[in-house]
Design a protein around this nucleic acid. Structure first.
Lengths: 393, 393
DNA sequence: TGACTTATGCCGAACAACGACATATGATCG
DNA sequence: CGATCATATGTCGTTGTTCGGCATAAGTCA
């Protein structure tokens, strides 16, 4: 029954899973303690919030601690890549309790891929000793633009056969719960955002892997754009890419030069043998001078594109992730070099360009958070209700 | 006393100045008629809302119409350019009732310029037969980045001497009312947005004049960025600008090639005499082939930069304004040519690139709307409360 | 003129939030 | 070891907001 503003606000504060006292909650939600008491009672009765043991000694009477009943349900969070899927279970607070990577191929089309994912999810649930009825929500990040209102993938270049396929409906045949679908980089942005960059209003998450994409956070909210195509920066034209022909048919695309495939292509032109983007990381780690240089050049190209993005939205943080980012410094150095050289002083003085901290789980963490928003009817990403308008003086 | 949510919601609906019946208001604010009645009574009593005559015949009893008491106060709205200022008076609904353009020079520094503006505002008030005590709010759009929280201009390249000058405080010495300061292109974006593009979630306003800047609207809200530098796209690097040195010290900046000054420079290199950006418009209108071509080239360069912006935020509308935009087709054609060629099909299929419709008053209209938000304690730009969460089933 | 339609005003009921008071529970100190 | 202090808890009456219902007003239309 938590449908009032106060209950929502309480959940919005408690959604991170940490426990709090009534006084803390009253302060955080800007209500009186009696109001918080009343609503907490309902939430506890409904099994949504748990009353924990008393706090350790302060001076006065110890207070009760309240926290989200994170174990009351399970969220299935999936990150889909071109050749694999990471299927994870999280508790209602977003803590990952189990995860497993399976091999799939998105070009096989939606049914077989989703079937494999759903099977894996069932297996994980069984292994965790959880009945399927415990599933409270399902979410998936996919490497395609997603239309915000409908959750449908639209014109996905990497995923022929998925165009406007109703993933939500398909999943609901198995798990009849809220289903969230969003772009893979968007969910990474959320994952990194809620774990490390809660306070930042504008943030950019860049994924450098087989392709290149961005997750865009503005005013603490994900940006989807009119067609779900926001953040599709792989086909920005950069000078470094020259006349190289991209798979999209254009020339000079960022992706054709700076993605895993693009770097491999650069190296191949120099006679260095690489099959795939994955090899590039191995080569750099092995100390290959050519590979290191190519990655740094790729970083510069990305930096060139980012300089423009910075001029447009002036973010305070840019997080670099994706498989290629795991080479670490060379890529980051290339990006920083151009970003700080080409950006206006005002926009770059406070700007931080950092590597993603959780390459493996950022995606599913973000998915879980977005699903949680739906399960609890919460808005936005922030830890607090929303910094909108303060109510009291 | 209108400080409750319901009163705010009512004002948020009525802010456009149109009149509505109680039933319409109840529907728009999602409250019962009795609630609306109660709050309207207070608002009418407070002189904030006016009760108008009855509606013309429907079938049943005619209803009363209610509208914002637009004449209860005056908003002073100013648009500051490098060499001039447009000082306007609007009613509380944002309707421009008087305006006058005065000559100033921003390089003289803030005090003399603001003094001239304030004097002009006083003159306009006197001419309108309005006492100064009628002024309910003051706003100004300035050609500089503005820090959102403080309203201070930061590191303005065009306005040396204005850095972190407290415009709000200075104005309040004369008019002790809410004072709003924002970037000139931001306010133009708001002005165009509320008059023609209310429904669009993502929108870009591009001003092409002496310099080049953008106003960025995402999720129906203005984007200021971490340092107020969002939309400062004049110094994006574009290939067309080649190695041309920009006043910012970098090379290849969009502004060095595609702004009024940049176009003049291009023409000068071809031996065509122009003193200033203003001349460019005259030359095109006079049928100069060189000037027309140069403007179209400028459009292409802008299109190149915009293609990147489109990839990042996927707007549904891009509005082109500024003095150079008044040449009309050549500029727009150049922009469209590159935008539609370089953008991903998904992002550009629904995208409209249009000319600003109100070159003269869009700025002050936007200023007035932003001031109105402060005067009535409203959030956002939208006509409706915010499409956030629907309250009933 | 009377039926019909639509708006209005007013009132009591339901609900949410608050502040205050009495009480509970531990630490701390003499 | 008991008194005191500090802090948290539960409950209750008050206040204010919102809702739905009912009687009534003010037009149109036949």
């Amino acid at each position: 029954m938590p449908d009032t503003t106060t209950s929502s606000d309480l959940l919005a504060v408690l959604r991170d899973g940490r426990s709090r006292t009534k006084t803390e909650l009253a302060e955080a939600t800007d209500r009186s303690r009696s109001t918080v008491t009343a609503h907490l009672a309902k939430l506890v009765e409904g099994g949504i919030v748990t009353q924990l043991e008393r706090t350790a000694a302060t001076k006065g009477r110890p207070s009760m601690l309240y926290a989200l009943a994170a174990d009351a349900g399970v969220i299935v969070a999936v990150e889909l890549g071109a050749r694999h899927a990471l299927v994870a279970l999280t508790d209602l607070a977003g803590g990952v309790t189990a995860h497993h990577r399976i091999v799939v191929d998105v070009v096989d089309g939606p049914e077989p891929v989703l079937a494999a994912i759903l099977t894996e999810a069932r297996d994980l649930l069984a292994a965790a000793g959880r009945p399927e009825s415990d599933v409270a929500g399902f979410g998936i990040g996919i490497p395609a633009p997603v239309e915000l209102a409908t959750g449908l993938p639209v014109s996905p270049p990497l995923m022929p056969g998925w165009d406007r396929f109703d993933i939500r409906a398909y999943v609901r045949l198995v798990f009849d719960v809220p289903v969230m679908v969003d772009n893979d980089v968007n969910v990474m942005a959320v994952g990194e955002g809620i774990t490390h960059w809660v306070a930042e209003r504008e943030m950019l998450m860049i994924k450098v892997a087989t392709g290149i994409g961005a997750g865009v956070v503005v005013n603490q909210r994900l940006v989807h754009g009119a067609d779900g195509a926001a953040g599709e920066i792989g086909h920005i034209r950069v000078s470094a890419a020259g006349d190289r022909v991209c798979r999209c048919g254009q020339t000079g695309c960022l992706e054709s030069f700076a993605s895993g495939i693009g770097i491999a292509r650069t190296l191949a032109e120099q006679g260095v043998d690489t099959d795939d983007g994955r090899d590039v990381v191995a080569l750099v780690r092995a100390g290959s001078i050519e590979a290191t240089r190519a990655v740094r050049e790729a970083g510069r190209a990305i930096g060139e594109a980012l300089a423009t993005c910075i001029s447009l939205i002036n973010p305070s943080v840019i997080v670099i992730g994706g498989s290629i980012a795991s080479v670490g410094e060379p890529l980051l150095a290339g990006i920083r070099e151009v970003v700080y050289q080409r950006s206006q002083p005002l926009a770059s003085k406070q700007l931080r360009v950092v590597a993603a901290t959780d390459l493996e789980l950022a995606g599913v963490t973000g998915v879980s958070r977005l699903v949680q928003s739906q399960v609890f009817h919460l808005a936005g990403l922030g830890a607090r209700p929303t910094p909108a308008t303060q109510r009291r003086s």
